[in-house]
């Protein structure tokens, strides 16, 4: 671009009208230059456009629609045109709805419990399997399998295993001479049972990310620790885990966000019962929308869930930004 600009300038003395003094082929170039310039400027937007359009259609539109919907009273099965604008009534309702608070409590308990257990188990498994043993890659693959199973199937499998009469656990307990355990029918146990199923499915996620983090640790730092006299566990505790921390933090956040939105497995296992003991927010939203048929209220509920997840993400992004700024400052001190 710059080259041809200079070229054009030299050939056109001040005051000369474009076209008159310039030979024909160059006049052509001059004529098309503005267009080329414009195209060049537009190029990045053209490249971004497909992604931007898809994001708008698939993400922003439903989100805005849901916000708009949350200000209206709309019953399932009636035309949207007949819905009424009700202002903040839906939000007022949910703040006074004990079921909302109950499901919020269940969701928080569920989400933090699964993340803590999955992180502990996943990191431990990764540390145990981060070595060159025979069949180790086979084990790694086996451990990752649960993550690949569709959540509905996971729900069905665990529902069968938890079954009090003919489930796998019932057989096992009976064979060992224990009384049957009401895995899904006791309000006290149901949430724990649901947590176990989720841990089974999603520990592999933490596991593979931790394993990847472990395998990318600086080899020489680990060798230095060996020479410094660290035992295997001292190395894990003083070197490996601290260095894995950034990856573990991201993996845990991703799991936390996901855990807030979990639906299928719990829907299949307990449908939120007994009582409200396993009714997490997304299930509550589902029931409000399709059982109570209150779409406006359901929209308000899902916006609350969105806010919670958004808040988590913002907190995490802020932490990352703080760390990055610290690192930049550190680099500047050199």
């Amino acid at each position: 671009m710059q080259l041809s600009d200079g070229f054009e300038g030299k050939l056109m003395p001040a005051g000369a009208t474009a076209g008159a003094a310039v030979p024909t082929p160059l006049r052509g170039t001059a004529k098309y230059l503005p267009l080329r310039k414009a195209l060049n400027r537009a190029a990045p937007y053209v490249f971004i456009a497909p992604a931007a359009i898809i994001t708008t259609l698939a993400l922003a539109y439903p989100m805005l629609q849901s916000v708009w919907l949350s200000f209206r009273d709309w019953s399932l099965g009636t035309p949207l045109g007949q819905s009424r604008f009700v202002g903040l009534a839906n939000y007022e309702w949910l703040l006074h709805d004990p079921n909302f608070w109950a499901s919020a409590a269940v969701t928080l308990t569920f989400a933090f419990a699964v993340v803590v257990v999955e992180v502990l188990l996943g990191v431990m498994l990764a540390i145990l399997l981060d070595r060159e043993l025979r069949f180790v890659s086979l084990f790694r693959t086996i451990f990752i399998l649960p993550m690949m199973v569709a959540p509905i199937v996971v729900g069905l499998v665990w529902r069968y295993m938890y079954n009090e009469q003919f489930g796998t656990f019932a057989h096992l307990l009976k064979a060992l001479g224990f009384a049957p355990v009401p895995w899904l029918s006791s309000p006290k146990l149901a949430l724990i049972s649901v947590i176990i199923a989720d841990v089974w499915q999603w520990t592999p996620f933490i596991f593979i990310l931790s394993l990847a983090a472990l395998q990318s640790l600086p080899a020489s730092a680990l060798e230095a620790a060996r020479i410094d006299g660290a035992t295997h566990w001292q190395m894990v505790w003083h070197i490996k885990v601290p260095l894995m921390m950034p990856v573990i933090a991201v993996a845990a956040l991703l799991r936390l966000i996901d855990a807030f939105k979990v639906l299928e497995v719990i829907y299949i296992l307990t449908e939120g019962g007994p009582g409200l003991s396993t009714e997490i927010m997304s299930l509550h939203i589902y029931k409000t929308a399709f059982v109570s048929q209150q779409l406006g209220q359901a929209a308000a509920l899902s916006n609350m869930l969105l806010l919670i997840v958004l808040a988590l993400t913002v907190i995490f992004a802020a932490l990352t930004a703080v760390r990055q700024r610290r690192e930049k400052l550190a680099a500047a001190r050199r």
Binding site: P218, A221, E223, I227, D228, G229, H238
Partner: peptide
């Protein structure tokens, strides 16, 4: 004691803790 080509310092420890790691262990 060994000095490595890429220094092999422990990135998460400050200089004093890097130097004292073996003694602390």
């Amino acid at each position: 004691a060994m000095v490595f080509q890429d220094y092999a310092l422990y990135p998460h420890m400050d200089v004093a803790r890097n130097m004292s790691f073996a003694l602390r262990l």
